[in-house]
Design a protein around this nucleic acid. Sequence first.
RNA 1: GGAUGGGUGGCCGAGUGGUCUAAGGCGGCAGUCUUGAAAACUGCUGUGCCCGCGACGGGCACCGGGGGUUCGAAUCCCUCCCCAUCCGCCA
Length: 450
Amino acid sequence: MLDRKFIVENAELVERNCRHRNVAADIGRFVELEGRRRARQAEMERLNQEANRVSKSIGEAKDPAERDVRKNRGRALRDEVAQIKTELDRIEGELAVIQSGIPNMSHPDAPVGVDDKANLELARGKTPVREFHDHLELKQEVTVQVERPGTALLPQFDFRPLDHVELAEKLDLLDFEAGARVAGHGFYFLKNDAVRLELALQAYALDVLSSEGFTPMTTPDLARNEILDGTGYIPRGPETQIYSIENSDLSLIATAEIPLGGLLAGRIVDADELPVKLCGISHCFRTEAGAAGRATRGLYRVHQFTKVEMFAFTLPEASDAMLEHLRGLECRIFDGLEIPYRVVDTATGDLGGPAYRKYDLEAWMPGRGEFGEVTSTSNCTDYQARRLGARYKVKGEKGTHFVHTLNGTAIAISRALIAVLENHQQADGSVAIPAALRPWMGKDEIRPRQ
RNA sequence: GGAUGGGUGGCCGAGUGGUCUAAGGCGGCAGUCUUGAAAACUGCUGUGCCCGCGACGGGCACCGGGGGUUCGAAUCCCUCCCCAUCCGCCA
């Protein structure tokens, strides 16, 4: 959430930002209520002060009659306070509702637009996209090259590429049918080399991030709703993406961002302990409510997957640079996997609540014939930290400040599997293992079973 | 699941109705001493909000959350949550 004083003092900026974000929030009402809250607050404090004075004077009163007079005075004052408190609570409630609906401010360079159509492509990965064109004369050359402005000559598929579901069937890597039988549509079993691939992808990501000073962690796959709220996830309501555990205040996490953010909830750290760089491995659970019928085939949109997540707590002045750092690592990881991708600067209307700026990596997915999101990294500035109560203190200085939080996908296994299988497939239906994964796979390719 | 104990400032920990304006310690900051450092000693040191041009100025609230009793609650009552230990079961 945003700071109340900031909202009041920058009402026009906040209002404009809400428009850019495509969010309806009654800022005018908020400013009015906050003004009233302060006035009532001041009034209540004045009465409390008076009542405290009266209470203290009772012990000093000489005769019983005088004591009774003062007691009555004290009682009257406390009654008045109680009335104001009731009104204050009502105002406070309405303020909190509006406040929690106001999204974070946006980075001045983030592309402005109400939805993902305004997203801006910033860069491409090192690995060129391979496409398949029916009209090309396949017999002439094994690899056809076409020219594209601004890039090197691009290799093309010289065969019609399969999608990961077809590949997985040939290679016996996935069982969606059994997943559906056991847990319903959207669940799946990984089998055989897909299991090794998952472990290899985790090990590879962990390897890169450990060398960059991230502390590896596995996290609880459940978190208290309070922590979900703090990180900006909404555990209840019809639109929720979150599975909640019945008869408890726990939910299944949608990403390790949730428990990792919760790590410093309600805590104050020394400024010289920052930045804290964490690398969390967890399962991720998503109901995908409202996503019915959209890209439901295969692993693209599933209810459970494993993810290696980067998370950072930084000083405010360090968060912009940290976001670039996280983006750079995502690029390094996917370049290392020899997967073609593009980097997208997310438009204001597509940022969600907590993000100040967000970059997505979209990998080329030959089976879909389009780019699909595989990672996402966000700078949430102090928006999450304020709600979580994650603060830092500078030695020798008075007071505390909110840290900045950032998160970024290192590897989301399900979508990474799509990208690896589809981009590294070979004409005979086998899949070449990218060199970066071979140490953990113990083999160079996945071949169909004999 | 059963039993018990407990939630107090950055941390540890005392405190069972009115100098709690929360003892004491640790840590931190500043100073004295010292060639320098350590030790020792002295002082300062919680969070949030409000008032104020500002202060090393004033005020209010906060002892797990909420509610109650009282002129007055960390302290008494109700309720909820959380944590720890032991036992049982179990990977």
